Simulated scan of single mutants.
Amino acid sequence: MENIRCIQTSDITTVSFEDNVYRGTYRGVGKAIEACLQSKTEGNLQLVVLENQIPRLCISLPDTLIKAYRHEEISLAQVYQQMGITVDTDRAMEALKEAGKEKASSAWKMDIVVYPDLFLENNTFDELYTYAINLNPAIEMALWKGGRLTAQVVLPVATNLSGEMKRVRPGVIVLSQDVRLRHNFFGRLTVGNFTNNRIGAQLEMKYRNNNGRMEFGASIGSTGFSAVTSDEGWYVSRRQRINASVTTSLYEPHTNLQFDLKASRYVYGDYGVRGDCTRHFGEYAIGLYGIYTDGEINGGFHFAIPLPGKKWSRKGFVRVKPSDYFAWSYSMIADGKYIEEKMGGSYNVRPGENRSSGFYQPDYIRYFLIRELQRKKSS
């Protein structure tokens, strides 16, 4: 683990840590809980889970639960069932202010991550219209608390398209800053070159309730057009387009379903509403979506599947690894007014954004920690 801090009082031990080794969000949490249960701590225990040094979750284990496990009166699965897990980290982070400098800092360590990229677009059910296969290596580096640098290049492998799609070109090149405010408010400012030929800046804010089942967010962006051309090289337009959105999300823990509803002003000026329903199967996320914008209806599906390699240790300052997930989205409509007028136009500010990566949902983490134990016992 990295960015480890610890402080002990007479009745409670508070530890913060960041997992940059294990794929997904729940495996690292499980490893940290097991390590603490096997230690010689006294009293209650609370763990703060970090992402890029920003607190995401707080896990609490009362002294009675820890003693029962150490005396083999209950199993690890029962510990997971009875432990507290919440988005609220304010009190724990207040206690850690006196903990001093963190150990095993993640700052200025570099990952070279290779992202697979697939583009398919169909006009009919029986004929492939266009395709593109790319490999997109990216340098990703944590700079300071909440600060991250990403620099990606797109390397074409095969395509039946022409122009920019056949050229080596810049991918996502951004500097981002995340912040966490009190009472479960999060913010992010991102500046740079985004996906879908957009370059500019985006500001995001969101609020999560304590159990993480409800989330409300808003974003606003100002971007111009960015592309590699044969005449001008890397061309960037001066014209800025404003996009904005408000979002609400609901996680239903009994079925592991995530519902997202977003109202947006899209990049090219159209207004619309999009709804997503995503089912989480461990680290797999598969979903359907529908969108209505300026009188046009579209829809499709998306998924994120984990790639080989559950654990990638970082022994030095440079690590080379594939991306944790392959994410892909399919759109039902690929021609007509919807495409000609670029309706529903949007972009991502990070490579390979998907609904599995960084999914710090308390019910999801508890459920799949227990499922992972059951899977190991049955295998």
Rank of each mutant, 00 (worst) to 15 (best):
A201K: 02
R180W: 03
Q240T: 11
T89R: 01
N243P: 00
K109L: 14
K31I: 00
N348L: 10
D276E: 15
K145E: 13
I4N: 01
L143T: 10
Y115I: 02
Y26L: 11
Q374V: 04
S75W: 01
Y22M: 07
K166P: 00
D117P: 07
N136L: 10
N160D: 15
V49R: 02
G309P: 04
A95S: 12
D260Q: 07
K376S: 10
K40E: 14
E127A: 12
R319W: 00
E98Q: 14
V114F: 15
M93F: 04
R188S: 13
G200F: 05
E2M: 14
M83H: 01
I173L: 12
A327Q: 06
C6S: 14
W144M: 07
A132Q: 14
T86L: 01
Y347K: 07
A218Y: 05
G221W: 03
Q202S: 02
R213L: 07
R70D: 06
K262I: 08
S75D: 05
S264R: 08
D276H: 12
I199T: 10
G24A: 05
D294M: 12
N136Q: 15
Y338F: 14
L61F: 01
F303A: 04
Y330F: 15
K342I: 01
Y207W: 15
G200P: 07
G24L: 06
V79G: 03
Y330A: 13
N256R: 10
F225R: 11
S346E: 13
L118D: 04
D363R: 06
E94Y: 00
K315V: 04
L65F: 07
E252A: 10
V191R: 02
H280I: 02
T64V: 14
S106N: 10
I297Q: 05
M1Q: 03
S264K: 08
Y360A: 07
L373V: 08
G358Q: 09
